[in-house]
Amino acid sequence: MITVHALTDEDRELIALARRTVDENTDGPDGVYTMGAAVRGVDGRMYAGINLYHFTGGPCAELVALGRARAEGARELATIVAVGNEGRGVVGPCGRDRQVLIDYHPGIRVILPTAEGVGSVPVTDLLPESYRWTPNP
């Protein structure tokens, strides 16, 4: 059973950053796949990213935000969220993103829509019994 946590002011600030990022960089009404994401480090710093949609696939906004955080020195992350363009609101991570989050940041909280409304959950609740990748078996 998933335990959903109520949003904090910091969570709302992170959602606002992801929303600003997608609104300022959207592909417009025809870009129905444009997503923005934001991640917060344990030190409180926030990092944003936007996806590069392409019919062959492309990096999700969450992965771009994770990469940006890493490039700027953040190694421990606390919370992540993705927001769709054109007012689509908060969107949960795809399966690939969930796996990457578990592998790199198993303690991260994910903000997503739930039956109780938008809230946060530990990433481990989203992919129970997940495969844990390691370069050294």
Rank of each mutant, 00 (worst) to 15 (best):
131 Y>G: 13
94 C>T: 11
128 P>A: 00
128 P>Y: 00
120 S>E: 04
80 I>D: 11
86 E>V: 10
89 G>N: 06
91 V>L: 07
79 T>F: 09
81 V>G: 13
99 Q>R: 10
87 G>T: 03
117 G>Y: 05
96 R>M: 15
92 G>V: 13
92 G>A: 15
126 L>W: 01
121 V>E: 00
117 G>P: 04
93 P>Y: 14
76 E>F: 07
113 P>L: 03
73 G>F: 11
93 P>W: 10
125 D>T: 05
127 L>M: 10
130 S>L: 05
86 E>K: 10
77 L>C: 10
132 R>V: 15
85 N>A: 15
88 R>V: 04
111 I>V: 09
79 T>D: 15
130 S>P: 08
99 Q>G: 06
77 L>G: 11
125 D>W: 03
106 P>Q: 03
81 V>H: 12
131 Y>H: 15
108 I>W: 05
105 H>P: 00
85 N>R: 13
80 I>E: 09
82 A>Y: 07
80 I>Y: 09
95 G>Y: 12
100 V>T: 07
103 D>T: 15
128 P>G: 00
85 N>E: 14
104 Y>C: 11
129 E>H: 06
127 L>C: 07
80 I>W: 06
115 A>W: 00
115 A>S: 09
83 V>L: 07
105 H>K: 03
103 D>R: 12
89 G>Y: 03
84 G>D: 09
88 R>A: 09
93 P>H: 11
99 Q>Y: 04
104 Y>P: 01
76 E>K: 11
86 E>F: 03
87 G>N: 02
94 C>D: 09
99 Q>A: 10
110 V>R: 09
98 R>E: 07
124 T>K: 04
97 D>H: 07
98 R>D: 02
129 E>F: 05
125 D>F: 06
82 A>P: 06
118 V>T: 12
119 G>K: 00
100 V>F: 03
79 T>V: 14
116 E>C: 06
115 A>L: 05
105 H>F: 11
112 L>H: 02
100 V>H: 06
132 R>I: 10
77 L>T: 12
83 V>P: 06
81 V>E: 14
87 G>K: 04
88 R>D: 04
113 P>T: 02
112 L>M: 13
103 D>Q: 05
120 S>D: 03
95 G>M: 13
75 R>F: 08
131 Y>S: 13
82 A>W: 01
130 S>N: 11
113 P>M: 08
127 L>W: 02
107 G>D: 10
112 L>D: 02
100 V>K: 04
75 R>P: 01
104 Y>M: 13
123 V>E: 07
107 G>L: 03
120 S>A: 13
99 Q>W: 09
78 A>S: 15
118 V>C: 01
93 P>F: 12
79 T>E: 14
122 P>M: 05
97 D>K: 05
122 P>C: 00
87 G>C: 04
129 E>Y: 03
124 T>R: 08
95 G>T: 14
86 E>M: 14
71 A>D: 15
95 G>F: 11
78 A>M: 11
90 V>N: 04
120 S>R: 12
102 I>P: 02
94 C>G: 14
84 G>R: 12
121 V>Q: 00
102 I>E: 06
95 G>S: 15
125 D>I: 05
125 D>M: 04
89 G>K: 06
78 A>D: 15
120 S>K: 05
104 Y>L: 14
93 P>M: 12
92 G>D: 15
127 L>D: 08
128 P>T: 00
118 V>A: 01
98 R>Y: 03
99 Q>V: 01
92 G>F: 13
78 A>C: 06
116 E>N: 08
94 C>R: 07
92 G>W: 13
102 I>G: 08
